[in-house]
Structure formats: C-alpha cells, structure tokens
C-alpha cells in the first residue's frame, strides 16, 4: 500500500482502541457492552493488517493467548459465585465491596462504580472477541497457496 495509507492507519490506531475500550467499560450504563466493543478493537487490528500486508511481524500466538485468557477469566468469574449462592451469581452487586453501590429505581445519570460482576464480564468477553476476530483476519490475509498445481 502507499505511504499515505500506512501513516494514516498508524495514526488512527490509538483513537479506535480508546473508543472501543470506552464502549466496553460503559457497558452497564449506555448501549454497548462486551461484544460491540470487542468488534471495534478488532477492526483496528484489521486496518493495520490490510495496510501493512507482510511488512509487520505479528505472530498468531499472541492472539491465541489473549483469546484463551478472556474465556478463562469469564469462567473463573462464573465459578466464584459458588461461594455465595450458585454458579454465575452476581456476588459483587449490592455489597459494600468494590463494585457494589446500590441504585434506586428511576432515571438517573449513571455511576461507574455500580453493576456488580457485569463490567468484569464485559471486559473478559471484549478481550476474547477482539482476539478471535483479529486471528481470523490474520489467517485469511496471510495465507499462501502451497498445493496449487498448474495444468498445462
């Protein structure tokens, strides 16, 4: 690709990632959440991959590690609810802990400190979806034909 595309794609990388993290972290206050923010972050990586096709050194083991980390974090959060009541229990809501501020019924301006285990689950799913979609794009873009036979 030309030089303009490479420079612009590297410049637009940071605002896209920050915007995706904003959508992930405010998942319990505004429309959005884990899946939508994860796709936004994956689109930033796909932009860099399309601009620099073979000039950048990106190994696929990094994305595999982050995808597995997201899913394992989600399952650990699910198993931690067994100590309170049941599997997948919201053990941080309405408690006096870290994310447990109570909210009354009615319209209000949102509070980031609330929500229980929902923002942590949003983060886990966001990491997993971003890594999974970037991995798929990396495999398809960097595929080389090996067994192609030519007929005379």
């Amino acid at each position: 690709m030309s030089k303009i595309i490479k420079i612009v794609s590297l410049t637009a990388l940071s605002p896209i990632i920050i915007f995706g993290l904003y959508i992930i972290s405010h998942g319990h206050l505004t429309p959005g959440g884990g899946f939508q923010g994860g796709v936004i972050i994956a689109s930033a990586f796909v932009l860099v991959l399309v601009a620099f096709k073979n000039d950048i050194k990106l190994s696929h083991k990094l994305f595999v590690f982050f995808e597995s980390l997201g899913l394992v974090f989600f399952i650990i959060l699910a198993f931690l609810g067994i100590f309170k009541n049941t599997f997948l229990y919201n053990f941080l809501a309405n408690s006096s802990g870290i994310l447990g501020r109570t909210i009354q019924f009615g319209a209000n301006t949102g509070c980031l400190n609330s929500g229980g285990v929902i923002p942590l689950m949003n983060l886990a799913i966001g990491i997993e979806v971003a890594a999974a979609l970037s991995l798929v794009a990396l495999f398809i873009i960097r595929h080389k034909d090996q067994n192609k036979t030519k007929y005379d």
Partner: peptide, 24 residues
C-alpha cells in the same frame, strides 16, 4: 444469534479459501 452467524460466516469463508487454494 448475531455472534453465532458471524462464526458460521467466518468458517464458511475460510473453507472457500481452502477450496480455492488446493484445487487437486
């Protein structure tokens, strides 16, 4: 449902890349 449709489309597309690359 949207995420599962996305996974199905990704699998179908990579299968078509496989068909196109290994013609024999």
């Amino acid at each position: 449902s949207i995420v599962i449709n996305l996974a199905i489309t990704a699998l179908l597309l990579s299968l078509s890349v496989l068909i196109h690359s290994s013609e024999n």
